[in-house]
Design a protein around this nucleic acid. Structure first.
Lengths: 193, 193
DNA sequence: AACGAGTGGTAGACAGTGTCTATGAACGAG
DNA sequence: CTCGTTCATAGACACTGTCTACCACTCGTT
């Protein structure tokens, strides 16, 4: 038995992540995940008493992944706060678009037990980091409010872009110009500090 | 028979809208809608061959309702383009928060047959109107892009606010200040024109 | 060494879902 | 009167999430 050296719990989440990437959140049936893991449909119940908890564990992988990418991008970008915010924003958007299914799941609060399971513990510190950067990048403003506004804008772009509404509305085919517009609006024009 | 003078088609959508307001998108089962309309579970099929089409018809009511409110708000507000954009934004957000279930459904593209069914015919003109206003309010910018950015921000605020993430992040309990932040970012500070 | 208790997974049942199909009632046109 | 057409009913099917009874296995205790 060389595949049970990783626990069934992890293998279920692995299968879920793969299935999510391949077919989207709608395909994340409990039974299909069990099937792909090679166990019976009742097996997941021992580790995830309910479907929501399994989905939440899968989404947790997404939050951790996103946090890792953001931190990586911030370490790579050393051009001052404004450039760091821009890098963070671009990373966030790229994640949302490249991992569309995962991103969708992460914000389907009806599928996740929102309160529990460290989602808060993963994304709140990330937001605080974001707010600190914004505070440095645009010194005058209320940092938390400004960060909330920019985050909302990014989330909105991610969502509406994936649904192709923004391409239709703006005529763009790349999200770069729109992202620049958003950043300029929230951080001031590019040259400023 | 005094309730069949409105067609079954309309009664189904009515029941769906009511159910949506009462219990959210998850409760919008074909069979439950049929039950509440007082017909068998197979009856809707004649008017809505698939579940998605019924849901799309329900969402269509939402788009029409939103468009009506926006036009009403614009007629009521006569203080120039910037004030009109602000009124539109506030109306949009209030709709999203007061009709949370409907708004959620309207942007669940996995439940709607996005292309078809005049959603495009309802919301694209609305967006063009929006872009024109923006063009008047902030004359320098690319109107479509600026409108797209602001729309995305509004959508993001609506979504994250409902999910209570923004309250948690900003500490606010009313979305007013955050909305002002968003508007100031995209339209310039309040006094300007 | 033998046993009893957990642990971890199986398999079947149940109510509920969306879709499909066969059936039947009502009704207007010829 | 009869034939078609329209509209709704009812049952079946495969599938879902949850629940429960069962069983194989391991491990610590006596």
């Amino acid at each position: 038995m060389n595949e049970s050296d990783t626990s069934l719990r992890d293998r279920l989440v692995d299968a879920g992540v793969a299935l999510l990437a391949a077919e989207g959140p709608g395909a994340l049936t409990l039974r299909e995940i069990a099937r792909r893991t090679g166990v019976s449909h009742g097996a997941p119940r021992r580790y995830f008493p309910t479907h929501l908890e399994l989905l939440s564990a899968i989404a947790g992988r997404g939050f951790a992944d996103l946090a890792g990418r953001v931190h990586g991008a911030l370490e790579r970008e050393t051009g001052g706060p404004r450039a760091q915010v821009a890098a963070l924003a671009r990373t966030y958007l790229e994640f949302a678009l490249e991992h569309a299914g995962m991103y969708e799941l992460m914000f389907r609060h009806d599928l996740l037990e929102s309160g529990r399971l460290g989602l808060r513990d993963t994304s709140l510190p990330l937001f605080s980091l974001f707010a600190d950067l914004i505070g440095d990048a645009v010194p005058g403003a209320d940092a938390r409010r400004a960060a909330g506004a920019l985050w909302a804008a990014l989330h909105g772009v991610a969502q509406l872009w994936r649904w192709r509404s923004l391409q239709l509305a703006t005529g763009d085919e790349d999200f770069g110009p729109l992202l620049d517009t958003v950043l300029a609006a929230h951080l001031g024009p590019e040259g400023a500090r």
